[in-house]
Design a protein around this nucleic acid. Structure first.
Length: 580
RNA sequence: GCCGGUGUAGCUCAGCGGUAGAGCGGCUCUCUCGUAAAGAGCAGGUCACAGGUUCGAAUCCUGUCACCGGCUCCA
């Protein structure tokens, strides 16, 4: 590590220590103002910190000012943070009136040191590290509150969480708040409305249902055709399965046992009915099992742009990121054990190529066996190892998360950030032990013996809804030319240029460009402003000069006025830009 | 589903017990215009929905629904 990198490391550690201390200062302030609170935990997070409290009521924005004022006082009092270690018995005694702290202490492994930090009259169970004194907490701000289950478990009591942040200087805090504001402008829900991409009618149509407007539909279609082309190159075969399938199949697949609360079941009578598909897998299992399969056929890569519906819980819907109906670029790969690694590597490379095309930053996770799961240990071990080795070959370094896999097998997930830095799972590649067994899937190997195929489940875009939401925020609405729903907007200067405009539109269309004519009776300045706000890549101004010289005046949304050129020149330029 | 906040015109918001407002957008007319907002006029709202309190409710209270920030869950 060079010196500069070390310096950055030191700074971020110092910032982390300061924020951690800020969370203690906040807890101290809350305890002074409301002595009856019980303390949960108070860690640092990405851009700040939080602290959880059990409190008779909720904290309101009105409380923020009082808490902040008390925090300032504590900082001024400049308490040193003193660390000390207690035995388990002493620690439990010390926290007699703090049930959550006692629970944490009881759960600490026996060899772990039980440390506390004291600042003035306030002492907290804490691993540290901290700043030397409360005075080192410089510029801070309480940001928001929310409910949060104790230990993240919905069966546990709900605590009141207060979020805050702290920085070394006022400028840094201001810059952070500004960044938050800028990020809000990229919010796909706002941009989606402003750009006329999609609509939701939560009151009329129910929550979590997406209506694609014509331009959003065009965007989605462009993306989907691209996905389809790549699938073809990778030798996937596309299938289409029904949206509504009899409940006896959902019983067989295990969905009724494991996923019923998320399913929309129609026409249920005497325990029988039809279920709307929440996943495409079972349909694909039927297709694989429809005839005797030979080892020579494998791998079979079965793809479907399958629209699925899941009855998500009320408070969880979020724009395009979390909806009840969405379309996956789903695929199931049935292969022989000796083909497994090669198939996984191919999917990983394929995924990386797609995510890189958009310049996303992503994080990968390898998720291992959860407590409630099926399949024997050796199979899990083999599958995890296959994923791990394939990741090495593909040059991906996933973070291992034990217990976070699916109940039917381990997986590698790719998460992409939205404008506000929240991670959303998009791509996923999963190994599935469950379905081949449930559907009794077999192929005949070279020794004429039946064997179970290995099943890989994968989605790269994940869902087009979520992926497009991420794209909107990533580009802030300025889609690259190949994706832009309207690629060129034609702006006639006066009514007499309408006809030329129509001719130009026809010409562009036949060259594979998506044009639109802005024929309203408005000034050219106003039309340009509107087109700029819509982030249309090319604005084509048509007036007397252009009509006379058979040219078009070209303005690019990012580069401004490019002067006039012939349509041939324009098309060449656009082709070049599309290829980027 | 849970905790909190918020629902007023297509959008952004003001009004917060006494006759529903503005800007943008839309429509009509005038203008026929040269690279980020021409001018004038008009239309548009059971103030989310349902109850309640009150002489009187957009405004206060309760419930439902939805949205927003989190938690949980997930593509």
């Amino acid at each position: 590590m060079n010196e500069r990198a070390e310096q950055i490391m030191d700074d971020s550690e110092a910032l982390d220590r300061m924020r951690h201390t800020a969370s203690h200062v906040m807890a101290q302030a809350v305890c002074r103002l409301f002595p009856e609170v019980k303390l949960g935990i108070g860690p640092t997070i990405q851009d700040g910190f939080y602290y959880d409290f059990l409190f008779g009521r909720e904290f309101s924005r009105d409380d923020f000012a009082a808490i902040e004022a008390e925090m300032k006082r504590i900082i001024k009092e400049s308490f040193p943070l003193e660390r000390f270690v207690l035995s388990r018995e002493d620690a439990l005694e010390r926290t007699a009136d703090q049930p959550f702290k006692r629970e944490l202490i009881r759960d600490l492994p026996p060899e772990e040191e039980i440390s506390f930090y004291r600042q003035g009259e306030f002492t907290d169970l804490c691993r540290g590290p901290h700043a030397a004194t409360t005075r080192e907490v410089k510029v801070f701000r309480i940001l928001s509150t929310s409910g949060a289950y104790w230990r993240g478990d919905e069966k546990q009591p709900m605590l009141q969480r207060i979020y805050g942040t702290a920085f070394f200087t006022k400028g840094e805090l201001a810059a952070y708040l500004k960044r938050l504001k800028e990020a809000e402008k990229r919010d796909h829900r706002k941009l989606g409305a402003r750009l006329g991409l999609f609509e939701t009618f939560p009151e009329e149509a129910g929550s979590g249902m997406v209506f694609w407007l014509e331009e959003g539909a065009k965007l989605r279609e462009t993306l989907l055709s691209w996905a389809r082309r790549i699938n073809e190159q990778e030798e996937y075969k596309e299938v289409i399965t029904p949206h509504l399938i009899h409940t006896k199949m959902w019983e067989k697949s295990g969905h009724l046992a494991n996923f019923k609360s998320h399913m929309f079941i129609a026409m249920e009578e005497d325990g029988e009915g039809m279920g709307v598909k929440p996943m495409n897998c079972p349909g694909h299992m039927l297709l694989f099992g429809r005839k005797r399969r030979s080892y020579r056929e494998l791998p079979i890569r079965m793809a479907e742009f399958g629209t699925v519906y899941r009855n998500e819980k009320g408070g969880t819907m979020h724009g395009l990121f979390r909806v009840r109906g969405f379309t996956q670029d789903d695929a199931h790969i049935f292969c022989r054990p000796d083909q497994l690694q090669g198939e996984i590597v191919a999917v990983l490379n394929h995924t990386r190529m797609i995510l890189e095309r958009f310049g996303f930053k992503w994080r990968t996770f390898l998720k291992g066996r959860p407590e409630k799961s099926i399949g024997d240990d050796s199979a899990w071990e083999r599958a995890e190892k296959a994923l791990e080795e394939a990741a090495v070959v593909a040059g991906i370094e996933p973070v291992f998360v034990p217990k976070d896999g699916a109940f039917y097998g381990p997986k590698i997930d790719f998460e992409i950030e939205d404008a506000l830095g929240r991670d959303w799972q998009c791509s996923t590649i999963q190994i599935d032990f469950n379905l081949p067994e449930r559907f009794n899937l077999k192929y005949v190997n070279e020794h004429d013996v039946e064997e179970a195929p290995v099943l890989i489940h994968r989605a790269i875009f994940g869902s087009f809804e979520r992926f497009i939401g991420i794209l909107i925020e990533h580009y802030g609405g300025s889609f690259p030319l190949w994706l832009a729903p309207v690629q060129a907007i034609i702006l006639p200067i006066a009514d007499r240029h309408q006809e030329t405009a129509v001719a130009l539109a026809t010409h562009l269309e036949s060259a594979g460009i998506r044009p639109k004519i802005e024929g309203r009776n408005e000034t050219i300045g106003k039309k340009i402003r509107a087109a700029e706000i819509q982030r249309v890549p090319y604005m084509l101004v048509l007036g007397d000069r252009e009509a006379e010289n058979a040219t078009v005046s070209v303005r690019h949304r990012d580069e401004g006025d490019l002067g006039s050129m012939t349509t041939t020149e324009l098309l060449a330029r656009m082709e070049a830009e599309k290829a980027v």
